[in-house]
Amino acid sequence: MSTLAGRVPGIVDAHAHFFDPRTPPWSLQRLGRASVPVLKALPRPLIRVASRFTDEHSLSGIAGPGRLSASYRLREYAKDLAALDTVAGVPVTTVIPVDSQWRRRLSPEEVPGAVTRDLDFLRRLPYGDGLPELGGLLVPADDRIPGLGVADALDADVDGLIRGFRLRWGRHHDPLVHDWTAESDPLRSKNFRDAFGPLADRGLVFESLCYSHQLGELASLASEYPKATIVVEHLGCPVGVFGPFGSSVGTTAAARADILGLWRERMAMLAARPNVHVKISAVASGLFGYGQERSGNIGGQHILADMIGPLVLHVVDRFGPERVIFGSNAPLDTHNATIGVVVGALLDVLGDRGDYLLSHLFNDNARRVYRITDQ
């Protein structure tokens, strides 16, 4: 079996979530996955209303059932990495934690304080000393706020750890797929337009979380701002590409073929913009329709490799080895696949593509894009 030993000095995990639901800014609902059948039986107009009283994070594929009700810090992350050495042959040496504010219903007035608390929490975690080092921080942006709510975090960045800003702007027609914004066209909103250019001019990376049908809008933004560095999260989020999801997405083979075809087209559009990079992350996400059997897992490493192979190879072939970045998305998908299984599946798909690609995917590109320096 192919490993990274002797090929990559260590893995940079550019997408992991750390949180503690017992403390602000996290406030979690916990009725769980049991409510999914009930919701699906409701008339479509009532699904969104009812989902407000359930564990919307589990229902919308953001996390496994109950995952967000328990603390996840570096100690838990290290346990999840324990089996990685056997698969990869090298450890995770550096991690970039991504904000974990899944609740979108904070008022605009509450957001700056929540962002500050989130970033302070991430800064204070005990990195190093046998655990991965901190590679940098991303500010969660909010399209409802002038300046996207990023300015205060930048002003307080005395340690120079902020590397970019992250906007979750996905909107989906299916009522059981989470909408991150109420704005119909967030990348064209006044708040976004007024803030984006100045933030990009400061060298900050723009992290985009949207769904695959929205990627054309992102391609237009990349063309308009060719000097801005843009990172597309989670392979562009082709919801339902592996199987049925939500109330009606990907329910037939023909529907899944349409999702894949549109995704391939939009990713090719983005690849033509040299300032766009892609995170190969969340590959075992429930959003993709993976892990929807009753057991919570549809297979192991080799089945996952077979499913993600066409997507990963399309991205690598289109974007090239210097514009792809690995992220585990831990712990949100670990109910479907451990970090070791995810890395092993990627090695099954890409192991014969050569050391240059593997080194750039798992280490070099993240260090360059996020300006990670040796500790």
Rank of each mutant, 00 (worst) to 15 (best):
G243E: 06
P43Q: 07
L260G: 00
A156C: 02
P112D: 07
T116Y: 10
H335S: 12
D159W: 03
D85E: 15
L347C: 12
R264S: 08
H314Y: 07
V98N: 05
G130F: 08
A366H: 01
G64D: 13
L218V: 15
A34Q: 10
D352W: 09
A257V: 00
L74E: 03
A271E: 01
P24G: 06
L148E: 06
A14I: 04
S58P: 02
P24D: 01
G66H: 10
L215C: 02
R123C: 01
A282W: 09
V36L: 14
R22N: 08
D159Q: 13
F362H: 01
Q292S: 11
G216S: 14
G261Y: 00
V90Y: 11
R371Y: 02
I325W: 08
L134H: 01
L125Y: 02
S328K: 03
S60G: 14
R44I: 10
P244N: 04
D129N: 14
Q375P: 15
D185L: 06
L119G: 04
R124K: 10
L131I: 00
S71E: 11
S27Q: 10
G261M: 01
G246R: 10
N329C: 04
A366V: 02
P21Q: 03
R264A: 12
L137M: 01
G250D: 03
I308D: 12
G261W: 00
L42F: 09
D155H: 11
I96G: 02
R256Q: 09
H172R: 10
G351Y: 12
G296K: 11
R371K: 11
M307Q: 15
G32T: 05
K279W: 05
P244Q: 06
K227R: 13
H360C: 05
F18C: 03
D143C: 15
T181L: 13
L161R: 14
D159V: 00
T229I: 11
F245E: 07
D352R: 12
S359K: 12
G136T: 05
S2Y: 13
R166Y: 13
L346S: 07
H335F: 10
L125R: 03
H15M: 03
D364P: 00
L287Q: 11
V231P: 08
G170M: 09
G216C: 02
Q101C: 09
D55E: 00
P25H: 04
K40C: 05
G149I: 15
F319P: 02
W102L: 12
A255W: 07
P9C: 08
K227S: 09
P43D: 02
D317M: 03
D352C: 01
I325T: 05
L215Y: 04
G300T: 09
D174R: 07
G64H: 11
D55L: 06
T116M: 02
K227G: 01
M269T: 02
T54P: 06
P321G: 04
I230M: 12
G216D: 15
G236N: 07
L59Y: 07
Y225W: 08
G309C: 15
L4N: 09
D333E: 12
A272T: 05
W169V: 15
D201P: 08
Q214L: 07
I162N: 11
E217S: 13
L187R: 13
L260S: 04
S107K: 15
N363W: 11
D333K: 07
G10F: 13
G344E: 09
D201T: 05
D306Y: 08
A195K: 10
